[in-house]
Amino acid sequence: MDRLRIGLSACFFHPDGERKAAPSKTLLWIEQSTAHWLMSEGALPVMVPSFSGETFRGGVGVEDYARWLDGLVMHGGADVWPGSYGEQPLRPEWHGDRVRDEYEIALVRAFSAAGKPVFGICRGLQLINVAHGGTLYQDLRTQKPGALVHRDADAYDLNFHEVDILAGSRLAQLLPPGRHKINSVHHQGVKGLAPGFEVEAVSPVDGVIEAIRHTGGPWVAAVQWHPEFHRPELGVIDDTPLLRDFLQAARAARTA
C-alpha cells in the first residue's frame, strides 16, 4: 500500500538553566496517542523538526517538508504566546511558547501554500486561528463570563461536556448533527474568529467555539477537543469520520 505521509508538528521542551535536572538542549517530541490515531487509518506519522535554534544547520527548510509530506496535523500542548495575536500575557503562566508559535505558523503557511491539508487539535485549533489573524481568550474561566470548566487538571481527558454540531457545516456531513459528548482539555479558546473561517461546533452552555474550518482555498479544519483520546465506551462521539475526511483530502492533494 502506498501509505500517506502525515506531518506532526512537534511539541517543545526548552532548556531551563535554573533547574539542574532539565536538559541542556531543546527536546522535540510527539504524543503517542496522536501518532497512533493517524496510524489507525494506515497513515505514516512523521514528526517535523524545528528550523531554528543554535544547533540548526544545513539547507533543509519548512518548504521541503511541505512538498514531501501529504498533510499536516497540529498537536495540542503549550499555550499560544499572546504576542502572536497582539496582546500581552495577563499572567506569567499564560506566557505560552513564542518559539513554537513561530515554528507552527510557518508550518501552517507552508503546507497551505503547497496545497496540503492542515488539521488542528486543541492548541492546533488556537494556533490555526491566530495564524490567520484571529485572537484568543487567554483564560476562559476569568475572561468569558459563565464559561464551563473546559480544563480540569485532575480529570484531564476525562473532563467532558456537550457540543453542538452546527447544521449546514461540513462537520455536520461527517458527524451526526445535533448534540454530542466530547472531552475538554483546554483553558484558552477562540475569541475573535479569523477571517475566512466559519464555526462548525460550539459548546451549548457557554458558546465557546469548538470547531472551525476554512471556507475557501486551502483545506484547513480544526477541533478544540482531542479526537485521539476518544474512547467509544465512555459515550463520546466517534471521530473516525474526521480523520478519514482529512486523509481523503491528503490523498487528493497528492494526486492533484
Rank of each mutant, 00 (worst) to 15 (best):
N159W: 07
E41V: 04
D139T: 02
V118H: 04
F160A: 08
M39L: 07
E63H: 06
I105D: 11
P92G: 00
L4W: 01
N129R: 05
L175W: 15
D157F: 15
R109N: 09
A249S: 07
A113V: 03
M39Q: 15
A35S: 14
L193F: 02
V163P: 12
E228L: 09
L174Q: 10
F56K: 11
I165E: 04
F51P: 03
P49Y: 08
Q224D: 05
P23E: 09
A194P: 01
R213P: 00
L247D: 05
L44D: 14
L193E: 01
F246L: 01
H75V: 10
L69A: 09
F160S: 08
C122V: 03
R91T: 13
P218V: 12
L127E: 03
G192H: 06
A106L: 00
L27E: 15
S40T: 12
E233Y: 02
R3N: 13
F160H: 14
A201W: 11
A113M: 07
V223T: 09
G83M: 10
L243E: 03
Q32E: 15
G86V: 06
Q173C: 12
L90C: 04
L4G: 02
E54M: 03
D245E: 13
G58P: 06
V163I: 15
L140Y: 00
V149C: 10
G7Q: 06
I30E: 12
Q248N: 13
L125N: 08
V62M: 04
A252V: 10
A211D: 06
P145A: 08
W81N: 15
G76H: 01
A43K: 13
V236Y: 10
I182H: 08
G192S: 05
R244H: 01
S52K: 10
A147Q: 11
P176E: 14
G124T: 02
L148H: 13
I212P: 05
H230S: 14
P117H: 06
R231V: 14
L171P: 00
R3A: 15
D238C: 07
V62S: 06
S203K: 07
I30S: 13
V199H: 01
S50R: 14
Y85T: 01
D154R: 13
F160R: 07
P89Q: 08
G53H: 10
A252H: 10
A249L: 04
G217K: 06
I182D: 10
K144Y: 05
P117G: 05
P204D: 03
R100C: 10
M39G: 12
P89W: 06
D152F: 03
Q224I: 05
L8K: 08
P145Y: 09
S9L: 01
I128Q: 07
W37L: 05
G58A: 06
L69E: 09
W81F: 12
W225Y: 12
T142G: 06
G96T: 02
H180E: 04
L136I: 00
G59K: 13
P204A: 00
A110Y: 00
R109Q: 15
L174G: 09
R98N: 02
V48E: 07
D157N: 14
T135A: 12
W94A: 03
H186M: 02
V220T: 04
V236A: 08
I128Y: 06
Q138V: 02
L193G: 05
H180K: 07
R231Y: 07
P15H: 04
A172D: 02
A250E: 03
A21W: 13
